[in-house]
Structures are given as C-alpha cells and as structure tokens.
Computed example of a mutant assay.
Amino acid sequence: MQAVVAGLLAELAGLEDPRMREANEKRGDDHGVNLSSLRAVAKRLKTQQELACGLWATDNTAARLLALLICRPKAFERQELDTMLREARAPKVHDWLVNYVVKKSPHAEELRVGWTADPDPVVASAGWALTSERVAKQPEGLDLPGLLDTIEADMKDAPDRLQWAMNQTLAFIGIESAGHRARALDIGERLGVLKDYPTPPNCTSPFAPIWISEMVRRQQAG
C-alpha cells in the first residue's frame, strides 16, 4: 500500500501547475493540480477505502482531495469524520469532506449538532453547511426560529467561512420556508452580509435578500 500511495503522490506532483497553485494559494488551498485531472485519476482508481485512508494520512492536500473521491463515505465512524474535519484546514478539502463524504454518512445529523456548537469557527461552519442541507431536504424537527435568532445575533461578526455558511442557512430558510421568509429577508437586509460581494454576470448574488428573492421567483415561475 505504501508503494501505491508513493506512486500516486509522484503522479500528483507531476500534475502540478505553478500558476494554478498560485491561484489556489490565494484561497488557502496549497495545491496546483487541475481538479479535472484529479477526477480522472479517481475515475481510474475507482472506490478503494484502504487506499483513500492511506492518501489521507499523507497530509498532502491534492492526495486528500483524491482520497475523498475514492473513499466509501459510509465506512467511516463518527469519530473518524470528526478527526478528519479538524485536520482539514484547506478550504477545498474541508468543502469536499462535508459535501462528498459527511452528507452521505449515517452520522451526519449527530455531527451536525455537535459541530454547529463547536467553538472552532471552521468546525462550526461545517455544522452550518449540514444545517443548510437539512433546511433544504428535511426541515422537520429543526427549530427554524431558533436558527434565525442565532444568525441574527452572530452572523455579522462571524469569521469568513462561518459567516458564509450561516448566510447560506439564512438564505435556505428564506427560500424553503414561506412562513419565515419575511424575517429572513429582514435579517439579511439589516445585517448587510455579502451585500457588496462581487458577483459575475448571470450569477445570483450570495446576499441573502437577493438570493432568496431570485430563487422564490424561479420556483413560482417554474
């Protein structure tokens, strides 16, 4: 297994593009491998849980991204996922771990509850990302007014990644819950979080009032 991991590390090093690394490092991601190339390697390898664990253990960002593409999400225990999240400081690794692995895990809800209340804002941002998923797909049992209370009190001054995740939950509540839409819009307007975020043409602004209004318009039109 060590030889296979070493060979893959060498292959990933050969795929490095200095210009891509420079662009990625501005976002906190210390790798320069084109993600399409990374996915092609994953497609060749197919699902290999043991190899995924070996790649993760290297602490190499590109190798960890590859690990998340070839792992078996339901094979991880809750504590393993918690440890992995706390190790995953690169934003892309953090994002893929939550979206490609944790969301498919039977431990997702337990982790969501624990992470949302965690004092580490990066860990808490993962909890809020999972909360957004529940708001959109399984809102039953969630305390939406309580979530809005927390967002109203804490989002304005939250660190960037946590603020982004809380803002997503705010938008999802406004989009999915007509009964809480007016309050979600009001919170978004008053806090002004991401109001001036640069948004490319033909893309929807992450500013919650614009995001909510546009998604609701599309739902009603469709």
Rank of each mutant, 00 (worst) to 15 (best):
A3I: 05
L8T: 00
L12Y: 04
A13W: 01
L15S: 03
L15V: 07
E16I: 01
P18F: 08
R19F: 07
M20H: 10
R21N: 06
R21C: 03
K26M: 12
G28I: 05
D29R: 09
H31E: 14
H31K: 02
G32T: 07
V33H: 05
V33N: 06
N34K: 04
A42W: 02
T47C: 06
Q48G: 04
L51E: 01
A52M: 01
C53V: 10
W56Y: 13
W56V: 00
W56G: 00
A57D: 11
A57T: 00
D59G: 00
D59Q: 14
N60R: 09
T61M: 10
R64A: 00
L65M: 11
L68A: 03
L68Q: 02
L69K: 14
C71L: 04
R72G: 05
R72I: 02
P73A: 07
A75W: 03
A75S: 15
A75E: 14
Q79V: 06
Q79T: 12
L81I: 11
D82G: 08
D82V: 07
M84Y: 11
R86V: 01
E87H: 06
E87S: 11
A88T: 02
P91R: 09
H94S: 03
W96L: 12
N99P: 01
V101L: 04
K103I: 09
H107P: 06
A108F: 05
E109C: 04
L111S: 07
R112F: 02
V113P: 01
V113H: 13
G114S: 11
G114N: 07
A117T: 12
D118S: 15
P121A: 07
A126K: 05
W128I: 05
A129D: 13
A129K: 12
L130C: 08
T131F: 03
T131K: 05
S132R: 15
S132H: 12
K137Q: 13
Q138M: 08
P139R: 13
E140S: 10
G141D: 03
L144F: 03
G146Y: 06
I151K: 00
A153Y: 04
D154V: 01
D154Y: 09
D157H: 08
D157Y: 07
D160H: 11
A165L: 11
M166S: 07
N167W: 10
T169N: 09
A171Y: 08
A171N: 02
A171R: 13
S177W: 09
A178G: 08
A178L: 08
G179T: 02
A182K: 12
R183A: 03
G188K: 04
G188C: 08
E189Q: 14
R190Q: 15
G192N: 08
K195F: 04
K195A: 15
Y197W: 15
P198V: 08
P198G: 06
T199S: 06
P200A: 13
P201D: 14
P201K: 11
N202R: 13
T204I: 15
S205F: 10
F207A: 04
A208R: 04
A208V: 09
P209M: 10
I210Y: 02
I210M: 05
W211N: 08
I212C: 05
I212W: 04
S213N: 08
E214K: 13
V216C: 13
R217D: 12
R218A: 13
Q219C: 01
A221F: 04
